[in-house]
Design a protein around this nucleic acid. Structure first.
Lengths: 153, 153
DNA sequence: CCGATTTGGTTGAGCGTTCAACAACATGCC
DNA sequence: GGCATGTTGTTGAACGCTCAACCAAATCGG
């Protein structure tokens, strides 16, 4: 059976290309700033943030993967790097012998604390400073809707 | 001089994390679909699209880099791959002896034409179907504002 | 209790991106 | 014209991500 493609109309086309350009430019910029100022990519920064917010600064690998929207494989590689940098330590899980627990080290916490102000400033400058309060609200609703829609399917 | 960090308030925090999760999930999903169905990453698809829209299906490397928001290095590597796949051909520029012109081959055009319906369907399903017309409009304005803001600085 | 399935996590290969260095050519200035 | 500077594009190494394969341990079903 032949199904006609529902092509994008000009408005949708324009929206889609603008979104692509904007989100890529934003993430590229933040990634580059973080790499330059803190010596780590944004994905690694996010891992440290999540760990720093967790009780006792530790999390199961799979929870951490979910929290950062990452695959298990990606997280495994990433934590290996973070461990080599001395920012994270791996521990065996006491209740599940398959499990591994990632623990943020003091060194990792210090590094994160040093990187955070600059990064937050970057997010503010490149994202929030450009938008009106109403637009920030719109962006939140849109993003939450999209995230739901994507993980729901 | 010590400058106080302008930390994110709870609303901004929530917006930022939702945006991160949504844009990552969206791009990951589309990238995976395109890789599965057309054997190419989204970045390469975009290159083929731009070429297909250009007069005579050809563009200077640097224009193509600008159009796709890519670095020259990235484009160079990418076009090398696309050339190996037989989808793009390189030509010397007649007016600037440093220049190279990327030309979409018939094979490349055919491959793109085969990939497009599925990809557009994906964009519609994962993005536009989830949003109201008003939200699409909001997203366009937000994205255009952000893109301006980022390339302006 | 035991085999089958599922879950948690790691590994290595292949690929795409980044970054810095570089080569070739064009342009500006005197 | 001739030298300095800017632009165009490529290259190779290092790095991060994806994918498929895999092992070990937990859980399910009889």
């Amino acid at each position: 059976m032949v199904v006609m493609t529902r092509w994008l109309n000009p408005d949708e086309q324009r929206t889609w290309r603008a979104f692509l350009a904007a989100s890529r430019a934003l993430m590229d910029t933040l990634d580059r700033e973080l790499q330059r100022d803190a010596g780590m990519p944004h994905a690694y920064y996010e891992i440290l943030v999540r760990l720093s917010e967790a009780p006792e600064r530790r999390m199961r690998m799979s929870e951490l993967a979910d929290a950062t929207g990452s695959s298990r494989s990606r997280l495994s590689h990433a934590v290996a790097r973070l461990e080599a940098a001395g920012w994270v330590r791996r521990k065996d899980c006491p209740t599940d012998r398959r499990g591994q627990i990632a623990v943020l080290t003091d060194d990792g916490f210090t590094t994160l604390a040093a990187a955070a102000p600059g990064h937050v400033e970057g997010v503010r400058r490149h994202l929030f400073d450009a938008l009106s309060p109403a637009q920030v609200d719109q962006l939140r609703r849109i993003s939450e809707t999209l995230a739901d829609h994507l993980t729901g399917s």
